[in-house]
Amino acid sequence: MTHLSPGFADPVLDAQASFRAVLEAMSRPGRIQRIEARITPPAPLCTAAAAALLSLADSDTPLWLDAGDTVAEWLRFHCGAPIMPEIGAARFALACGAAPSLAALDVGTDEDPQLGATLILQVAGLIAGDGWRLTGPGIQHEHRLHVLGAPADFTAAWARNQALFPRGIDVLLCAGDSIAALPRSVTIAEA
């Protein structure tokens, strides 16, 4: 086994702070939050995605990822999450490379829409102020979010996901220590 870098420096308080950043991101879609946890995940995993997973995933949440064996080993060790070969069986999916099709993830059922998966999507960068126009719950008028390296046709795929509501998946966009969320309730319009 290769040497594993440590997880959260303070498993209790770093998890709490990371969760609050994710909660704030989810409550105000498209607003960029900073994750301040002291953590050095193995490449290509970024700080924000690592902190989100460490604070939310565990043995009860099957995980799919495309980030390679080192990251898989690191997450298995620090979260205890079972790694799934099939993305459809995962509660959390971590995409560091090409984004998977949103339609491949579990969207839950009308009675249990909360079973819809959370996709953690690593992107090249998040910039506020221009880009997509977001509206919906959590947004007073409009939030703007520019996603560097967003998957092609993402907004069209998102519209199909949103049409499933209350079923659907939720997305956490991560870049470095920044995080922004797209809950299934949000409407995205191209700039």
């Binding site: 498993p11 209790v12 909660l23 939310l56 565990d58 909360q114 959590g138 509501f165 309730s185």
Partner: peptide
């Protein structure tokens, strides 16, 4: 810290995030 063990907090935190994503459910 805050009485609950970390596994319980994670379970509740996951529920809270889904609750925010599906308002009123």
């Amino acid at each position: 810290f805050a009485y609950l063990d970390e596994a319980t907090k994670r379970m509740i935190r996951r529920a809270i995030l889904k609750a925010v994503a599906i308002p009123g459910h």
